[in-house]
Amino acid sequence: MPGLFSFSPFEELEQLRRRMNRLFQESLGWEPFTRPGGVYPLVNISEDHDHVYVRAELPGVRPEDLDITIKDQSLVLRGERKIPKAEENVNYHRRERESGIFRRVVRLPGPVNPDKVSAVCKDGVLTITLAKPEEIKPRQIKVTTA
């Protein structure tokens, strides 16, 4: 019968999740419930006057395991997290860390200069610094009295 099942509990939950996220985002600036469907690695993007910064937590990943490319307004992060094999005579109590590959596209908030991109891996945090092209940098407007 049409109309009998118009209430979808999952949609209600999804709406609640979105509203909660919005509430948190507006008051605290962060969301407690990441949208499902996120891709590894999770990134934080920030910017200042001249640069855009993309950061990702990649513990144990070395520069040689990373492959970063940039095209237009997208960054492609590919790589592998390797965990060295334990020796023979070893028994596990806990196993929470994972190894594997990742391949993710990060959409940048605005245009960048593809020739001025640098990436640093420090203490397991990858920081990619991208320079904003000159044309789009906010320009100070001088106010003069007539």
């Binding site: 937590e57 334990a86 005579n89 596990y92 109590h93 806990r94 929470e96 860390r97 203490d123 945090v125």
Partner: peptide
Amino acid sequence: PAVDIYETPDSLVLVADMPGVA
């Protein structure tokens, strides 16, 4: 932090992911 804990005949080994920590 996510950890792996394993045991060898001589020791306990704990490996923890703490990105951003020096």
